[in-house]
Write a protein that binds this DNA or RNA. Structure first.
Lengths: 206, 206, 206, 206
DNA sequence: TATGAATGAGTCTTCATTCAT
DNA sequence: GATGAATGAAGACTCATTCAT
């Protein structure tokens, strides 16, 4: 039972615990995760987590952050190249990535609504990261600015607002995908495409 | 110990319990509400709730529904008159109402992510109501159709998508307002206004 | 809600409650019967029973007695006629009746083992009845005495012991029929017949 | 609070809990035994039992089995030697052992009639033991077969039936001994003797 | 006398946390 | 440091019994 964890520096176990907790975070609502379950998943004893974390929440917090960062990076890696393809295609692909991100992140965060102090701690931690939640829109804005300079996006529009107009419906759809969804409408990729088309068109009569 | 409950006909206590639970729903995350707490808040004994509800969840469900319906009705009462004022003003006001609705409803529902069976029951109950969650967009679409007929909104745009483009960012802002918010940006009414302007403008270069 | 019980003297309700409890006694283990269930079965209110009985147990006791007496009477009505048919046939038929009696009575009494005071009260009541449990063997002994006088049963045998030799295995089989029985052996009527044959034969080598 | 449990290897507490439950099983009806009572009897905290058993019933089951096995072994150790003494003496001694066994086992099992699922689980467990309940008769049958070969028992009799004729009345007497017994008759050893004599004699007129 | 709503003690079970080894 | 057995507070739910109407 000794070398199971790895031969890394002393605190490799800390990482190992975070990974185990993170794995569980993808499988069950956060409130259903017990310390015993984490310990078993990690293959260590029940009490060891208290050697590295003040309490269960602090471990969960670290796992939450790690998960958030890794999911976010996955999204950033998919950003389209300004000037390539069409705006419609690019934004639709982007919305697809956002949807996946939201489908993974939203339930994680939504589950935290039950635990405001923990939620608050998570947000503080997120804001210390290079890519906090509101900065999620930043690369999106960057991309749109580039397209604006290329003349492929209206010069007069507020790009920060546009980023919310993409993020919002997409996240909502991601959340909805976790509930007994309202069958019958178009499927999700098609909905995302319609959002983009409408956003490009604008409400203003020609 | 007699008149405490009210002088209404028979099952006034049922209502009283729903009210007590509803009050707690506004103060604490749903998973933190205990049967004992409800009983104490209602000023009755621990076991009474089982005389009126199959279990704790059924009571919570009733309280949740009552809250949802009353918040929804508040929103519907504020719908703008097609043709009056400007589109921008109307949609901004509408977004304001949606924001308030979301700020109240979203945390309520988000907390349920931890309890999928209860969440499912809530959705079934909501769909039996005249104004289910997906029908939330219906009056919005109705309003936009009227404006479309008046020629104040582009004829070629998908109004269902537009409704999501309004609901999504607004709900997200409502959720965000419950967290240690990202200080520094514009305040919420201003953000909502910017969403509307951008949505009216559209991305397409003139 | 007034005349539901009948127009008999004032305490017809007492009888009605006993009947309702007796009906439930045939359907569920005694410990699973609640006062509310009795009241609903009887179509009366929860609290009435305390107007006629000191507590739940006293009502149950009365129901138990009534049931015991009625089942016992059913058995007595089936006693064979001495001299008719053969001893083997008569005793086999008799064992069949006893088996049915036991299958009905045994679980009722066995369930009481969990409640010694109530059990004790039941036995005291039974002994005051004309046909107490040990008197169960009396008609059996009477029948055997008649056969003895007719020379169809050994003169030297203790008929009281014989009655136990019939009652015992039969009751045991009745109890066993209520449990996940040990499949594979002969069925119950055949077993009863074998008991009788062996009892007639005796262990003594010819 | 350290050495209280015993110095045995690892799961001494598991045994300790079974013992505590077993002790209570001898003192109170099974349905009256609470987890708290077991814990207090064992001198441990309320929740420990769930570290060793899936639930209360599984602990009770283990205690029940242990008791059953130990009582059964006590009985098997007393089997008479075929050919020794007389049949009457041997069977009377055997009936005495059975009576003691029944007096201990029957109330234990009878109390379970109120809890069919647990009863079923007990039977399954019993059948996995070398000496299940129906195999109780096996050593008895073995003994009688030996006597049959020695010519001391009628060759034509069904020994399986005979074993029931001994077990049945004996078990009934054992059960009866737990109730406000029917004073006045012969005492139990004498009754058992009479059963044996009658069984040897047989009903058939010489 | 009948009602049935209210009571509240008591049950089983879970789980974060501690601490002797 | 690591272990994992023990702790015990807390939660949902049941039900015999009471009592104002």
């Amino acid at each position: 039972m000794s070398g199971r964890v790895g031969d890394d520096p002393a605190t490799a176990l800390r990482e190992h615990l975070i990974d185990a907790a993170g794995r569980l975070l993808g499988q069950a609502p956060i409130s259903a995760i017990t310390t015993r379950e984490i310990a078993r998943t990690a293959g260590v004893s029940d009490g060891v987590l208290y050697n590295y974390f003040a309490d269960k929440n602090e471990l969960l917090l670290a796992a939450l952050m790690r998960r958030y960062v890794s999911l976010t990076e996955r999204f950033y890696a998919q950003l389209p190249e300004p000037g390539s393809a069409t705006i419609e295609e690019n934004l639709t692909a982007l919305a697809g990535g956002l949807f996946e991100l939201a489908a993974d992140v939203v339930p994680m965060i939504a589950g935290l609504v039950s635990d405001p102090p923990l939620l608050h701690r998570l947000f503080e931690a997120m804001h210390r990261e290079p890519f906090g939640p509101q900065q999620l829109s930043e690369p999106l804005v960057k991309y749109l600015e580039a397209e604006q300079r290329l003349g492929r996006v209206s010069a007069e529009i507020d790009l920060h607002a546009v980023s919310w107009l993409l993020l919002g419906p997409t996240a909502m759809l991601g959340l909805a995908s976790h509930m007994g969804s309202p069958r019958g409408g178009p499927d999700e990729p098609e909905q995302l495409h319609q959002f983009v088309v409408a956003l490009i068109t604008g409400l203003r009569p020609e």
